[in-house]
Design a binder for these strands. Structure first.
Length: 292
DNA sequence: CCTCAGGACAACC
DNA sequence: GGTTGTCCTGAG
């Protein structure tokens, strides 16, 4: 058991932040969570303000500590926020204990291809179904059965029609073709990420079928350690228009929104992706609506 | 019946 | 390079 506290790791906020689709509440809100990553699983328990990671010190040091991003000083980054930006200050305050997880590369590629034009509960369902069909089956004694995340090979091996019946729609072809391609270029992509050549990694990601700018930026942020990646989705567009807009009366073009994001958040160089998560999580939590 | 959801892509101009 | 229509599927 590894002990921390809510201000450093808030499982409720992380579970609902939309960066992870295989984190589940076990025991109702605010008590027990299960986090799945590849073929690993971690139990997280909250008791009051205390939070416990249920694993050995070896497992923690060897994997989960980095996965949970526990070696980063978030308080130091919070302190850099512009106090005049009231929306961001509120979002940051509401997001205390939010962390950017360092998730598996292939898992994030497939998960965020699935995420397009879907709502989070639907994404969870699809990812879970994909794991059940293609993932490794875990049958620990005295425990319920669970499944790991599929490998690119296991998906590709089933052929182009192997994904039918999972409610993936037009994403079937994207997932199949990207799995085939990942077998070829996966190692090269990982090397590029390890060298922190994020611009090059982004170009490789953009060459994958079904990966556009938004999905590529999510993968960079949630799996590649590129804390400066700022995914622009419909929620961010809505925030930029409502909180940082120019009140032109008509919706700005996507390019203009991206430009505006750089104007407003460019000063948070090195951690603008964390800023994105703060305002994104705040937005979808519903707390953004002021109660004057 | 319609619209929209954490987009991507191809076909235009 | 910017804009528009189309793509499964499920929920409201």
């Amino acid at each position: 058991m590894i002990k921390t506290d809510l201000s450093l790791f808030n499982p409720d906020i992380i579970c609902d932040s939309g960066q992870i689709f295989r984190m589940y509440r076990v025991d109702g809100p605010g008590s027990v969570f299960l986090i799945y990553s590849g073929d690993r699983r971690l139990r997280v328990e909250r008791k009051g303000d205390d939070v416990y990671f249920c694993c050995s010190a070896e497992e923690y040091e060897g994997y989960w500590k980095h996965y949970l991003d526990m070696d980063r000083d978030y308080a130091a980054l919070e302190a850099l926020i512009d106090p005049k930006d009231e929306f961001l200050v509120r979002a940051c305050r509401a997001g205390k204990g939010l962390r950017i997880l360092n998730q598996d590369l292939f898992e994030m590629i497939i998960s965020f291809i699935i995420s397009q034009q879907k709502q989070i509960p639907s994404i969870r369902k699809c990812v879970g179904a994909l794991c059940e069909r293609f993932g490794q089956k875990h049958t620990d004694v005295g425990d319920e059965i669970w499944y790991g995340f599929p490998t690119a090979r296991s998906i590709a091996a089933a052929g182009p029609d192997g994904l039918k019946g999972l409610s993936l729609g037009y994403r079937e072809r994207y997932i199949y073709e990207t799995s085939c391609r990942f077998i070829e270029i996966g190692d090269d992509l990982k090397d590029t990420v390890d060298r922190k050549a994020f611009a090059a990694a982004r170009n490789i990601l953009l060459s994958l079928t079904g990966v556009g700018e938004k999905v590529a930026d999510c993968i960079l942020l949630f799996a590649c350690g590129d804390l400066d990646s700022f995914p622009v989705d419909t929620h961010i567009i809505s925030i930029m228009d409502r909180e940082y807009g120019e009140n032109t009366g008509q919706k700005p073009s996507p390019a203009r929104v991206r430009e505006r994001v750089r104007e407003v958040f460019g000063k948070y160089k090195g951690f603008s992706g964390l800023v994105q998560q703060w305002i994104f999580a705040y937005e979808i939590s519903g707390q953004n609506k002021r109660k004057d």
